[in-house]
């Protein structure tokens, strides 16, 4: 076996140690790591992700869920699904993870100033959207109406619930939440997230939608916005997810048609990927 040598190369694949400041359990299978960059600051844009490395176990792409204006620590919200995420979930304050990045395209926050923002999240898909919400709130005058719609499976699966409730109390944004199923005691909406769209005010011609969730949730939502509300497809942004090993466009795993999800996305204008959703196994 040979050892690779190019210093630039080593930089690209080298995990940078970030100290875990805190671990917060969000939901039964979801937790958030608060991480300290070694040099005190970590610059990124809303919607970008990092490769999070559990020492000796492996690496997974995880979006950053904190505000891009807070560079002293970053938050990464992770669901326990496999060996790496379970290992990350066992970390404690004072432990270290490896970070590479930030990678990927951001939400188009600068290009959409002066427009209504329709932020639609499904399940854990709210995590990559949260930096966009923070950006909109921190630069509230740059945008017209800001609407946050959220859907998840049950009331026990609501990500960042307390924070979402606090957004709901604000007068400068509209929020609606829905679940697929609930028992009596749940006082909110029940039904798919697309049923919320008709209940909020926004100007379809002057709105940019940012949608994040499973592919079916994003396609159904985008179709509803286009067909039911006459939104232009290019004003809808979605985030894609695929198996990813390098995050720099050379491992080939995350290809989706002509796109490398890691470098061409993960945030895409909907028309760039829309045609591919109907082809099984792209």
């Amino acid at each position: 076996m040979e050892t690779l040598t190019d210093p630039a190369v080593i930089d690209q694949m080298t995990p940078i140690p970030f100290r875990v400041r805190s671990v917060r359990e969000e939901l039964s299978h979801t937790f958030t790591l608060e991480l300290e960059p070694p040099d005190g600051a970590f610059e990124f844009l809303p919607g970008q992700f990092t490769m999070v490395y559990a020492f000796g176990i492996g690496e997974v792409p995880i979006s950053i869920s904190s505000s891009a204006s807070q560079t002293g620590t970053i938050l990464q919200t992770i669901r326990r699904t496999g060996a790496v995420t379970h290992a990350l979930g066992r970390l404690k304050s004072g432990d270290y993870v490896g970070i590479r990045g930030p990678y990927g395209t951001p939400w188009p926050m600068d290009d959409i100033e002066g427009r209504d923002l329709l932020i639609i999240g499904g399940g854990i898909g709210l995590a990559p959207l949260r930096p966009a919400v923070y950006h909109a709130l921190e630069n509230r005058d740059d945008y017209e109406r800001v609407v946050i719609l959220y859907g998840t499976r049950t009331p026990d699966d609501i990500l960042f619930e307390k924070e979402q409730r606090s957004w709901g109390d604000r007068t400068d944004l509209s929020t609606l939440m829905t679940v697929d199923a609930a028992d009596r005691g749940w006082n909110g909406a029940v039904g798919v997230v697309t049923r919320l769209i008709g209940r909020v005010g926004f100007d379809p011609a002057n709105t940019t939608a940012m949608v994040c969730g499973p592919e079916i949730m994003m396609t159904v939502t985008a179709e509803r916005l286009i067909e039911g509300h006459s939104m232009a497809p290019e004003n809808i942004y979605v985030t894609m997810e695929r198996n990813m090993k390098c995050a720099i466009g050379v491992c080939g795993h995350c290809q989706f048609g002509s796109k490398f999800i890691c470098t061409d996305g993960a945030v895409f204008p909907f028309p760039e990927v829309a045609g591919l959703f109907d082809i099984k196994g792209v």
Binding site: H29, R79, G125, D157, D180, T194, G213, I216, V220
Partner: peptide, 15 residues
């Protein structure tokens, strides 16, 4: 149509 979407795993595996 909405009910059908509630039947599929619309928000991904949470368990």
């Amino acid at each position: 149509a909405a009910t059908r979407l509630q039947l599929v795993d619309f928000y991904g595996n949470t368990h």
